[in-house]
Design a protein around this nucleic acid. Structure first.
Lengths: 203, 203, 203, 203
DNA sequence: AATGAATGAGACTTCATTCAT
DNA sequence: CATGAATGAAGTCTCATTCAT
């Protein structure tokens, strides 16, 4: 099931939207079919399972969302900020996509998806960790020789990813009423700032 | 429903355990009653609702867990580390309590709980934020006068809390097979280190 | 689930009746509940599964039907005839019980029942085989010394049991319109007659 | 629908195989079409109904199986044994054909097939009965004049057919793990032996 | 304080079949 | 000759909840 048919794509899109609105619980085959204007059995022409739909959804979300948010070579604090700026803008524009931030909620429900989700989560964290490692390897402008207590990139990635997740979650809990982009930017800023040292920057 | 009766407390305890094992989906009135060795209607003698049980659970979790994890007076990096050390030890010993870290997942299911959960989440973050603010206010040894680009305490709290959540989540997804305490400590360390570390280095 | 409650017994009785009328396909939880004047979920208070109902049914059918049809010590041709006379009478009176003769049809549908059914079938055949063995061991009145080509009791049991099954089946296929007792008696007679030898008897 | 087209024949063949594997329940239009590498509607080009497929199947099975198993001229015990030897060999080689032995199980599901099945079953029994009658009519070597208690051929046929069915059924329930030919031969032997055996002995 | 029995709503899924193309 | 898309009916089962006792 590498390539989705048009109809499959349609189904997945609606599924994303519905989960965005009512959580995983809000996505039932009945409601999904109603939203598509067909009966339930029709869905089973296109996907074997509800699980298959969710799996396709994960794939799509990863491809669409995270591949539209490249995070590569540069690996500068500014690149990080820009990266998450794009993410926050995307979520603000299409809040249902916030689902992607909480992929892991699926795990509890469907063990078949657990592996997929774990892998996705790990992949994202590793991408970030790699970026941090690159940034640490490169000599900073203020570059002191003492590299003593350098924080491990993995932890930094976890902090940032976790922080972003939490902010997005609170934003959704509050009904998306406040400015995610602004709050998010402050968050990313906080981490990158501390990394380079507040005093190091302030001079 | 300020004070819980013994039976109510029993019910809530089992509910916590069950959610710890199978997520919110794993908690059904049927299974809960079976676990208690009674029939379902018996539960309705003690709680009006399933929602009421969850609400009581939130209260208990907050009181019990966070009162056992004080975070106040000192507000030093060491105090922070100690605080989270205690948390990780507690979770390792009784993994079901990890639920407390994901309280917010309830929100999607039951809108009645949404307010409670939002409040709890905010409260936790504020406690942390206050600690960070205190730490920043206190003149450091190296004490630079330039406080220009100091990261806001709220963001720091979000980063830390979010990072902790993410670590715990991965730990659970991996079946609690690795050493949460060690990994968690590195995480907390990463944040507190960066906060002070570069300052020391930049001279 | 050794002892059935009254309600369970009621359910099983109706289930037997329904299978008698429409075959295993004719037994659905919906129709069963309707016949009992309740809704479907009510059934699940009393049995965990549809399979559990069928399993209980097998137990009941074996207990009720075959223990009401003892086949023991005597083991004479006359006892055999009498035994099956009772069986045919029972089936004529309550045709739904004919189900018991075709227990094995369950096997294809539900693998969980396969063991039960195989065991039951084997048990019945062995009871018959034992009876035949006893009859062969006992010296016949005409008693020739030559025991050369004596047929094995197991095969005799299989022939009789199989023959009875087939007769009952045809009877049901024909809408129970002809006299099962008469036709059945001729069948049993045919086997017991041949066993002692047509000429041996005719003298 | 006297003559089947190639495609129809293909469909029927696969249907036989599928019923052989999973019983009548195992034969669905969906799975049948998948097996043939086409979609479901394609089947409806060739057969009006699922029932039509089953009907065609019955015809084919009768023609194919029973014309490969002639039972006529001689009508001696030896001919009987040979006949069933061929049957058991055929079933061992192609177990799916065992279906033919249980054609009657279809009746419950589809009333339209009931007549066909009844007829087939009766036909088989009559062929056997005729053989038995012929055998009885022919003067035996020992030829006693007393034909008084001679078992009726119809019952003998029912016993043999029923016994064979039962043996085959148990063989399938046991996963075709034991030697059907050997066990079957003993069965047929048991009936023919008793028929003539005691006669020889009684002198 | 608890039980036995039941319910309405709704979950996912399968089946034989049809229709336009 | 075949497909893609869909359907109505029905299947088993689960859930939170209620009511009389």
């Amino acid at each position: 099931m590498r390539e989705l048919t048009d109809r499959q794509r349609q189904i997945v899109d609606h599924a994303i939207e519905m989960i965005g609105e009512g959580g995983l619980t809000g996505l039932t085959m009945r409601r999904l079919s109603e939203r598509l204007g067909v009966t339930e059995p029709a869905l089973y022409r296109h996907f074997e399972n509800k699980t298959a739909i969710l799996a396709a959804m994960l794939t799509v979300l990863e491809a669409e969302t995270y591949e539209r948010l490249p995070l590569d070579q540069t690996a500068s604090p500014e690149a990080l900020v820009a990266h998450f700026d794009r993410l926050f803008a995307l979520l603000t524009e299409r809040p249902a996509l916030a689902t992607v931030v909480f992929l892991d909620e699926f795990a509890a429900t469907d063990p078949e998806l657990q592996a997929m989700v774990s892998e996705l989560l790990a992949k994202n964290r590793e991408r970030l960790a790699t970026a941090f490692a690159t940034m640490q390897a490169r000599p900073t402008a203020t570059g002191g020789g003492a590299t003593a207590a350098v924080p491990d990139p993995d932890s930094l990635a976890t902090l940032l990813l976790g922080g972003v997740r939490l902010v997005v979650r609170e934003w959704r809990l509050d009904g998306c009423r406040w400015d995610l982009a602004e709050r998010g930017r402050r968050l990313v800023f906080a981490l990158t700032t501390t990394m380079n040292g507040p005093t190091g920057r302030s001079e």
